[in-house]
Amino acid sequence: MLLSLDSVSKTYTDALSTVHAVNDVSLQITEGEFVAVQGASGCGKSTLLLTAGGLLRPDSGQVQVDGQDPYALTNDARAEFRARTIGFVFQQFHLVPYLNVLENVLAPAIAVAGSETETRDRALQLIERFGLSDRQQHVPAKLSSGERQRTAMARALLNKPKLILADEPTGNLDHQNADTVLGYLADFAADGGAVLLVTHDDRAVACAKSVIHLQNGRIAEPVANAV
């Protein structure tokens, strides 16, 4: 089991209201699985993703990633665990604006000790694989949306994670680039990795092996995808 959420809840409270962003959610994702989470805006999809990624501590419930509860670790240990185990892809790409493509891809390498040469070689392989070889010295501002998302994908894969958490990765892409990104995610799952994809995009849903509908922070019904 690569990802296991057991009765996870996360509530946001302010002076005026209480929002149950994630309410008693349980799910499991194994190696090779590509799971899509669908739901209306504000239903808790992103909160679920961040909780699963060790970035947002749940109020209750248990999170296990690759057999380890990330919230049982210290902050620094959790950061390193995240760097080694999980890759993130976001709708807004979240690239560092002053780093070029190669440097952005290499950014997660700062977090983990390793051979600089090997890491650089892997980054270059990923850049080539994602069709960015001729753009590797360009900063994000000079890239197209598709190129930025592919850069983010390459960055997510640098440390050979077991799990990719993708939050609306096709939200800002045209059809062609969206298909490309989804293809990469599918390939990652096919190679034994696990993907948890939060999306509105039906084409993205179509790529997933199973789909979870989230409604007011709860799982409505798990659906095995026909594909």
Binding site: A79, R82, P97, A107, P108, A111, V112
Partner: peptide, 16 residues
């Protein structure tokens, strides 16, 4: 703020 959030997300420790 944003880039620090990104760097933290990709695994950089607080001390880094």
């Amino acid at each position: 703020t944003e880039e620090i959030g990104i760097l933290r997300a990709v695994g950089l420790k607080a001390r880094q």
